[in-house]
């Protein structure tokens, strides 16, 4: 069938363009304008050039926040991806228990971020929280408000609790799409369980796992609400991730210039990573389709 070329159809995209311009492009332009100026309020600005960018790029505070952020993302990916795959492999494939599992797995995903934060904030408290109180009763010295290590453990376990389901559900969907014939062929060849996983299940899950890694990385790299509610970035600066630091700078100190420069660098990093993942994914699809 011949494809009709009609560029007038582009006019239908116009409302979306206007919406995106209003909600994303114009605010982003304003941030760029702020990043090269200094302001003391009242909409009065002074030109400073690239000074804020230089300050942010050489700031130890930002380097430390970036280090913490990368470590957080690396740790949660290292836990959530294998754990999610492991859970998906062990979920029932059909029948009533498959539905029960799916509903149970989807539950944490439905809870809003600030509620998850509040749940864990209370859950971990030594005086009234079930987890904190139980650990204290067992003689384990746990206090996420005072000990940096405990705060990290709490924030990581909370993220794993909240988001492993997503990885598991995606991996499960990938597993369900494998035709039975593959497993029968493996059985005829007397393939081991590991061989089935390595040469059938893992390659077939590759696409969805990449999406899972992308989603979890982006989300963890931008995480704000949950650690903010649980630890407020503390104790000290122990769990102050990039976005928490950014909000402190922009709203706490009202340093609009440095905060704008910081936002732009943050945005560029996320844009780069998204592009890399997107390119890898689309090329993978093309290779599979070929």
């Amino acid at each position: 069938m011949e494809k009709t070329v009609n560029h007038k159809a582009w006019l239908l995209v116009l409302p979306v363009l206007v919406l995106v311009a209003f909600s994303a492009v114009i605010p982003l332009m304003t941030v760029v304008n702020y990043s090269v100026q200094d302001s003391f309020g009242n909409n009065v600005f002074f030109w400073v050039g690239l000074e804020w960018f230089h300050e942010i790029l050489t700031s130890e505070r930002i380097h430390n926040a970036l280090g913490r952020q990368l470590m957080f993302s690396a740790i949660i990916l290292a836990i959530e991806i294998p754990l999610g795959v492991f859970i998906a492999l062990n979920m029932p494939k059909r029948g009533i228990w498959a539905s029960v599992c799916l509903v149970l797995m989807a539950l944490p995903l439905l809870i809003p971020w600030n509620v998850v934060g509040t749940i864990w904030q209370v859950f971990g408290r030594v005086d009234i929280g079930l987890l904190g109180h139980t650990l204290a009763a067992m003689g384990i010295d746990y206090n996420y408000t005072q000990d940096a290590f405990d705060a990290w453990v709490t924030v990581i376990v909370m993220d794993v609790w909240h988001w492993t389901s997503l990885v598991a559900l995606l991996a499960y969907a990938g597993l369900q799409s494998i035709p039975e014939a593959y497993y029968q062929a493996a059985k005829i060849d007397q393939a081991s369980r590991w061989a089935v996983f390595r040469y059938i299940e893992l390659p077939k899950m590759q696409g969805v796992l990449l999406i899972a890694i992308l989603l979890r990385f982006m989300d963890s790299f931008m995480i704000y609400t949950e650690p903010f509610v649980v630890t407020g970035g503390g104790p000290g600066n122990a769990t102050t991730f990039l976005s928490i630091d950014l909000v402190k700078m922009a709203l706490g100190q009202f340093d609009l210039g440095p905060a704008a420069a910081f936002s732009i660098i943050y945005f560029l990093v996320i844009l780069l990573i998204s592009w890399v993942f997107y390119t890898v994914m689309t090329n993978l699809d093309k290779r599979e389709g070929a």
Binding site: M29, V32, N33, V36, N43, W47
Partner: peptide, 14 residues
């Protein structure tokens, strides 16, 4: 447009 705090260099950039 005043609230956007435009400058000539950023305008040229865009």
């Amino acid at each position: 447009m005043e609230w956007m705090a435009w400058t000539w260099p950023t305008a040229i950039f865009f």
